[in-house]
Write a protein that binds this DNA or RNA. Structure first.
Length: 718
DNA sequence: TACTATTTAATTTTT
DNA sequence: TTAAATAGTA
């Protein structure tokens, strides 16, 4: 094979990493240094040049996106599909193992995956059943306790011997929760990993089979591995495996999720013959941006150490803007984006980054006012929406009637007269007879409980049975379609007022489309519906927008990791906000905030602005902040303050929904008569924004004046 | 049972 | 401020 496509485009260190002999390798890859390249080219090198079987390769990432990208790039390098290679997320691969070896793992064949929200519901339900005080035993805290311990590989039995009564109760809750899940065949995210680990640990034959198979284990974002993931990897690699891990200790920002930056050091101890390779040449940012990043991160202790450099220009200095208040700050940012755009830059090349989601609001308002399209990352993803989760719960009941979580979710959704009292009764019966809610419902009906509730319950059970039997032999998307409609969900959500109901119905329709386009992972050999549900839990839905609209990108610093933009704004650079006040106490947490800042800075390719507000409205109170300490940690010679504040000494009152300078949306004008599906006929009074964000104010004859989003309202022009 | 008023709390979230 | 969860009322 011609090695040019594999090695031609690499620099010396990248090439060293890619062509390393068969021994453990740790690649310390700085931001923008071609980390993914090294990983994909390494695999292409092994398979294409060293003639290693693709069967022997296991490559693991943290996100579905990264996994998909990696597979795509490998296949295009090798010019052949590599189906026998295992490329996936930790959770996805663990899931695959558990499906294959469900018996050895002690799981029912049709086990279901609980996402974070489902898990919380289960915990909340159990706390109530145990009649504990929810303010003393906060469900989220309990979940945190359980997941933290699972991430460390600890089962309740290993935690038991404790004197502290609070802790003992927590352990007890963990135990109760786990028994409940085992009984119902439910597996949460942390459990996927822990079970997969235990599966190998406790099955020598199985382990040696996989060890023989996966000689080459490659890991992306290694600094983000938690304890159980690391132990899982070590178990697999054993003494003969060849681990190749890539990471950056300076970009570790998930300590609070159990990630252990220490694994980078640990790796070198566990594999003393490790070859350490640093990738320090950066292909993304200007010299000034890298200089700032290097100087900032140097304030952290116990780093493996790394200094980014570039062959490119120094570029422009880092600019600092001190806003009068948060609205002034937003105004400034939007103004700069406007300049960028007028000079021919695309809006999607610009990103506004912030520490916490709540900060997006002011920017959104400013962007709407400027009629500038934008996109906020994060928030609810497709499979996490309430209406979608309802539909999924119905589908789960088709597979397993004893799934109490799903049962409780939809037994009265849409409302069918089965209220809290009835459910309470079912719970009591289920608990007393150690059975499921479904079976309890059946039993109670047979015992002839009185009245309406009984009839409604019977109707519900018949609905589920019918849906199951009548759709069993249909195509997946037809099943979903029928379930979504016959369950009454579409009708129920259609009743929600205005655009919201419309959007929800559209989402349900989208679920049918998703089912139609669903390609199950053939390796799993599961029934289509089961596979679809697993997919929904593990890939909560792409939150990528249409690449076609040219939007300003808004996101938290965390979600910006791995991305790059020519023009970047780090906003809210105030002490207390960033670094967040909750993290300023302990030095480990503060260092993580600094790494977060480092991640933010290194997103920028050409221009970087840091902005802050002297006065900011937080939780309804005006607060006065000091500039973030991180600003003073930057090299002063690379920094320049901008103060075009001559004309904006005070914010001018501007009617929020006054007459706008923006153009009327297509086909609309003031006074236009329109018809809406729900509200009937009316007259357009006002509008703001354009494109997909255009909103119209319509005075309806029947329903009064309402603001509607063009994209959802489906207005008919009369 | 369903809607409305009141209370409460407020980082980050790959799966 | 606000969103969400809970308590109270029709």
């Amino acid at each position: 094979m011609d090695v040019t496509p594999v090695l031609g485009s690499l620099n010396d260190s990248q090439r060293e990493a890619v062509t390393s002999p068969a021994a453990p390798v740790l690649v310390l890859a700085g931001a923008g240094s071609g980390k993914t390249r090294v990983l994909t080219h390494r695999i292409a090198w092994l398979v294409g040049v060293e003639d290693v079987s693709s069967h022997s390769i296991l490559a693991v990432t943290f996100t579905n996106k990264a996994a998909a990208e990696m597979r795509g790039r490998i296949e295009s390098l090798l010019e052949t599909p590599a189906a026998s290679m295992w490329v996936g997320t930790f959770h996805g691969l663990a899931h695959r193992l558990l499906r294959r070896h469900w018996q050895e793992a002690g799981l029912p064949q049709n086990f279901q995956i609980l996402d974070a929200d489902d898990q919380l519901r289960v915990i909340r339900r159990l706390i109530r059943e145990m009649e504990l005080d929810e303010s003393r035993w906060v469900p989220k805290d309990v979940r945190g306790f359980i997941n933290r311990n699972k991430d460390e590989g600890l089962r309740p039995a290993e935690l038991a011997a404790e004197d502290d009564p609070t802790r003992r109760q927590m352990v007890h809750l963990y135990d109760v929760y786990q028994r409940n899940c085992d009984k119902a065949g439910l597996v949460d995210f942390a459990e996927l990993l822990l079970r997969a680990f235990e599966l190998w640990r406790d099955n020598e034959e199985l382990l040696s089979h996989y060890r023989r198979r996966f000689r080459n284990v490659l890991v992306d974002e290694f600094q983000d591995t938690n304890v159980i993931q690391y132990r899982w990897l070590r178990l697999l690699a054993g003494t003969d495996g060849i681990p190749f891990v890539v990471g950056d200790d300076d970009q570790s920002i998930y300590r609070w999720r159990g990630a252990k930056i220490e694994h980078l050091h640990r790796f070198q101890k566990d594999y003393p013959e490790t070859r350490l390779i640093r990738l320090e040449q950066n292909y993304r940012s200007t010299g000034s941006i890298l200089g700032a990043a290097n100087k900032l991160i140097a304030n952290n202790t116990s780093r493996l150490g790394k200094n980014l450099w570039t062959e490119g220009e120094d570029g422009e200095p880092i600019r600092i803007y001190s806003g009068f208040n948060e609205r002034d700050e937003a105004q400034f940012v939007v103004g700069k984006i406007k300049d960028w755009s007028e000079q021919g830059g695309a809006r999607q090349e610009t990103a506004i980054l912030y520490r916490s989601n709540a900060q997006s609001r002011v920017f959104e308002e400013a962007l709407i006012n400027a009629a500038m399209p934008y996109r906020v990352y994060g928030g609810l993803r497709f499979f996490e929406r309430a209406e979608i989760k309802d539909a999924l719960a119905y589908l789960r009941l088709l597979i397993n009637r004893d799934d109490d979580t799903s049962f409780e979710r939809v037994v009265n959704q849409p409302t069918r007269g089965i209220g809290a009292r009835t459910v309470e009764m079912l719970r009591e019966y289920a608990q007393a007879n150690a059975t499921s809610l479904w079976k309890s419902a059946g039993a109670l009906i047979e015992q002839g409980i009185r009245g309406r509730a009984s009839r409604s319950l019977f109707e519900f059970m018949r609905l589920i049975e019918e849906l199951d039997h009548q759709t069993r032999d249909l195509e997946l998307h037809e099943r979903v379609d029928i379930v979504v409609n016959r369950s009454g969900l579409v009708a129920h959500y259609g009743k929600d007022p205005g655009e919201k109901g419309q959007a929800r119905v559209e989402n349900l329709e989208e679920l049918v489309s998703a089912a139609r386009g669903f390609m199950p992972d053939e390796q799993l050999e599961m029934p289509p519906l089961d596979a679809f549900l697993a997919h929904a839990a593990l890939e909560s839905g792409d939150d990528q927008g249409d690449p076609w609209d040219d939007c300003v990108q808004l996101m938290t610093l965390h979600s910006a990791k791995g991305l790059e933009f020519p023009l970047v704004f780090l906003s809210g650079m105030e002490d207390g906000l960033f670094p967040h006040r909750l993290s300023t106490g302990d030095s480990k947490a503060l260092e993580e905030e600094r790494r977060l800042c480092y991640v933010g800075i290194t997103r920028a390719m050409k221009q970087l602005y840091l902005t802050y507000a002297e006065q900011r409205r937080l939780h309804g109170m005006d607060t006065f902040g000091l500039p973030s300490r991180f600003i003073s940690e930057l090299p002063q010679e690379l920094v320049e303050e901008v103060r075009p504040r001559v004309q904006v000494s005070r914010p001018v009152y501007r009617p929020k929904r006054g007459i706008q300078q923006s153009e009327a949306p297509a086909g609309m004008r003031l006074g236009q008569r329109v018809r809406h599906g729900k509200f009937g006929e009316g007259v357009v009074l006002n509008y703001e924004g354009d494109g997909s964000h255009a909103r119209l104010q319509v005075n309806f004859e029947q329903s009064g004046t309402k603001w509607l989003v063009m994209a959802y309202a489906n207005l008919e022009v009369l």
